[in-house]
């Protein structure tokens, strides 16, 4: 069992999060939306990355988060009547760490997109490190981005359980860590409940299985 997770991770890094796959997936979504509302195209975002001289690791993480967030949002909109702004989520995912090299990067990131006139992106970027989300609250773009950010460690997919265990291993039993993860767990429960997993295409099952921690906590570390 644990072996499988490792294999899965490897393939996901290769196939799902390849720069090429992300660009192929997100280019049309953003291109269509940018014609109608104040959103950047994917190319414009890549130019921002280049001009900000963002480290490669941040770029690949942002791409992974945007990709996962968009996938989750698509599952949700396909499974229910929920309305989500998928293009905004794509752009927000790509730009959420745009000020990563500075302190207080979430707030600065929100300010940055406001300056560019992309107002719809500001709330989700501002709250991606700290979000209040209570059980029963309706799911929105901010919540999905929050969750996607947590299950992407760098550009590798990881379950919340596994990531929590790693954090505790590294920093000890801190209340702030537990609290941060609790928000993520609450969002995940809402997401999992709302999605009809039979709707998920086979190719995307890997993301789903990591999201629901199908292979169990701590699985891969012991393998």
């Amino acid at each position: 069992m644990p072996q499988q997770v490792k294999v899965l991770k490897a393939t996901q890094e290769l196939d799902i999060f390849s720069e090429q796959a992300v660009i192929t997936k997100l280019t049309p979504i953003l291109l269509q939306a940018a014609e109608k509302k104040a959103l950047p195209t994917l190319t414009e975002i890549l130019v921002i990355f280049a001009k900000k001289q963002l480290p490669k690791a941040v770029i690949s993480h942002s791409m992974a988060v945007a990709y996962v967030a968009v996938r989750i949002a698509e599952w949700l909109t396909e499974s229910s009547s929920m309305k989500l702004d998928i293009p905004a989520l794509a752009a927000g995912g790509l730009l959420h760490d745009v000020e990563k090299i500075n302190s207080d990067h979430a707030a600065r990131g929100a300010d940055f997109v406001v300056q560019l006139g992309y107002f719809s992106l500001a709330p989700m970027i501002a709250t991606h490190m700290e979000l209040v989300f209570l059980q029963g609250q309706p799911l929105g773009e901010a919540a999905i981005l929050y969750l996607a950010d947590k299950i992407c460690k760098g550009s590798t997919l990881i379950s919340l359980e596994q990531r929590l265990a790693k954090s505790i291993q590294a920093y000890g039993e801190l209340f702030s860590i537990r609290e941060k993860f609790n928000t993520a767990f609450v969002i995940r429960d809402s997401v999992v409940q709302a999605i009809d997993d039979r709707q998920i295409p086979l190719a995307e099952k890997g993301i789903w299985e990591i999201l629901i921690n199908k292979n169990g906590i701590l699985g891969s570390e012991n393998g």
Binding site: E19, Q20, I23, T24, T27, L31, T41, L42, T43, E44, L46, V47, A50
Partner: peptide, 12 residues
Amino acid sequence: ETEDIAQQALKL
């Protein structure tokens, strides 16, 4: 990856 990105690169 896309024509658009290539075009942007020219501008840089």
